Lab assay of single mutants.
Amino acid sequence: HITLTNLITEETTHVVMKTDAEFVCERTLKYFLGIAGGKWVVSYFWVTQSIKERKMLNEHDFEVRGDVVNGRNHQGPKRARESQDRKIFRGLEICCYGPFTNMPTDQLEWMVQLCGASVVKELSSFTLGTGVHPIVVVQPDAWTEDNGFHAIGQMCEAPVVTREWVLDSVALYQCQELDTYLIPQIPHSHY
């Protein structure tokens, strides 16, 4: 019994991606959610070859190996599938703050939850000092008015990073160091 759908849910078992011959794909929301959820992320060749051979072929032979941004053979989907007991964002409290493009905020929040993070909706909701690490995620190029994202640091004691930190961490299924993704914050004294 196979159901085809464009939506990823808890029940989804396989995410089928358009890939090149070496099982490398573009980074899409579907790709990120498939990895975050520990699903099989496979090339569409799995479907076409299975139909051709009239049997369901082994997914291992068709698993996506990499993507056009993070590298052609990083094995993120395999790492995620085999590490669902070791979520990459466990112990983190993440607030997805401000506008985002090409990806609804609720989907970004679901993605970080699938990776083990707790989501907070407001900067004031962080449970500071409880052994949980707060992180604010923003997408600077989605902000149309002044660079308000440079002043988020005044509203909460949390590192502010770009959305790329989430996307790179999920694609590779390895929590990336914050340093290269940090957004400089204007210190309090400048006000």
Rank of each mutant, 00 (worst) to 15 (best):
H1V: 07
I2D: 02
I2Y: 07
I2G: 12
T3A: 12
L4C: 14
L4T: 12
T5F: 06
T5S: 07
L7F: 12
I8P: 12
T9L: 08
E10A: 10
E11A: 08
T12V: 11
V15G: 00
M17P: 02
T19G: 00
D20R: 02
A21I: 13
A21L: 10
F23A: 13
F23Y: 07
F23C: 07
F23S: 15
V24C: 15
E26R: 08
L29A: 12
L29S: 06
F32T: 04
F32M: 02
F32R: 00
L33H: 10
G34H: 01
G34V: 02
G34R: 00
G34T: 02
I35S: 04
A36L: 02
K39L: 01
W40H: 02
W40G: 01
W40E: 00
V41D: 00
V41L: 10
V41P: 00
S43L: 04
S43R: 01
S43G: 06
Y44V: 12
F45K: 07
V47N: 01
Q49G: 02
I51L: 12
I51S: 07
K52L: 10
K52N: 11
K52A: 06
K55S: 12
M56G: 03
M56P: 06
L57T: 15
N58V: 13
E59I: 13
E59S: 06
D61A: 15
F62T: 01
V64N: 00
V64E: 02
R65D: 05
D67F: 00
D67V: 00
D67G: 00
V68L: 14
V68R: 04
N70T: 07
N70Q: 02
G71F: 02
G71R: 04
G71A: 06
R72C: 08
N73L: 12
N73V: 03
N73E: 15
N73F: 07
H74D: 06
H74C: 07
Q75T: 15
P77L: 02
K78R: 07
E82V: 04
E82I: 14
E82M: 10
S83A: 10
D85A: 11
R86T: 10
R86Y: 11
R86L: 15
K87V: 05
K87D: 12
I88A: 06
F89I: 02
F89T: 02
R90G: 10
R90P: 04
R90T: 07
G91Y: 07
G91S: 10
L92P: 01
C96M: 11
Y97K: 12
G98P: 04
F100I: 03
N102K: 04
M103S: 04
P104L: 13
P104T: 13
T105A: 14
D106G: 09
L108E: 02
L108S: 00
E109A: 09
E109K: 13
W110Q: 10
W110T: 13
M111I: 12
M111L: 12
V112L: 10
Q113M: 13
L114E: 08
L114P: 03
L114M: 10
L114G: 08
L114R: 07
C115W: 05
C115A: 12
G116A: 06
A117R: 00
A117F: 02
A117G: 09
A117T: 03
S118Y: 03
S118L: 11
V120T: 09
V120F: 04
K121T: 06
K121I: 15
E122W: 05
E122M: 11
E122G: 13
L123N: 12
L123S: 15
S124L: 06
S125A: 15
S125W: 15
F126L: 13
L128R: 05
T130R: 12
T130M: 12
G131W: 02
V132G: 05
I135L: 02
V136K: 03
V138T: 11
V138Q: 05
Q139G: 01
Q139M: 03
W143C: 07
T144P: 02
E145P: 09
D146A: 15
G148A: 07
F149W: 15
H150Q: 03
I152M: 07
I152N: 07
I152P: 12
G153C: 02
G153Q: 08
G153T: 05
Q154R: 09
M155A: 09
M155R: 15
C156S: 05
C156G: 06
E157L: 14
E157P: 15
E157G: 05
A158V: 04
P159N: 15
V160L: 08
V160Q: 14
T162S: 10
R163W: 06
E164V: 08
W165T: 03
V166S: 03
V166M: 01
L167P: 02
L167S: 03
Y173S: 04
Q174S: 05
C175G: 13
Q176L: 14
Q176D: 02
Q176R: 13
Q176G: 03
E177K: 15
L178V: 08
L178K: 03
L178E: 01
L182W: 11
I183L: 13
P184Q: 15
P184T: 06
Q185P: 12
Q185Y: 04
I186A: 12
P187M: 08
P187S: 09
H188V: 15
H188R: 09
S189V: 08
S189R: 09
S189W: 08
H190L: 12
